[in-house]
């Protein structure tokens, strides 16, 4: 069955990819996402499981090691490229809005 290709990243997806710039397992990803977003974004294990399988089938991440009861993942070059693209888009959004938003004050 052909997998649906990922075109854009949702907010939780962006944070999960960010946290996978270092090798991490499921529970570590969850706490890292929580940490970098300052508790604003939290992600449940079920949602994370679905997301990781989607990322893996799209080659954005890969499984590096399997321990009993846990699998460790890390981002791939393709994943980094996608993350860069998303980062650039968000930065662009912020930059575009800056002049106007600062003018409001």
């Amino acid at each position: 069955m052909p997998r649906e290709a990922l075109k854009t990243l949702s907010e939780p997806m962006y944070y999960v990819l960010l946290s996978l710039t270092e090798e991490r397992c499921g529970i570590e990803i969850m706490s890292k996402v929580n940490e970098i977003s300052g508790g604003r974004v939290s992600i449940g294990p079920g949602t994370l499981y679905t997301m990781l399988s989607k990322f893996e089938s799209n080659d954005l991440i890969r499984c590096v090691s399997v321990e009993p009861k846990r699998k460790n993942y890390i981002i791939t070059n393709l994943g980094i490229a996608m993350l860069r693209e998303e980062y650039a888009r968000i930065a662009c959004l912020a930059a575009d809005g800056r002049a106007i938003m600062e003018g409001l004050k």
Binding site: G26, G46, K69
Partner: peptide, 25 residues
């Protein structure tokens, strides 16, 4: 778990990964 079988209760490797992740949490 969408990927699990609807007619059987046997647990596949994928389902086991899912269970492990939930248990970790």
């Amino acid at each position: 778990l969408e990927s699990a079988s609807a007619i059987s209760n046997s647990i596949s490797d994928k389902s086991q990964d899912y269970i492990d992740m939930c248990e970790q949490a």
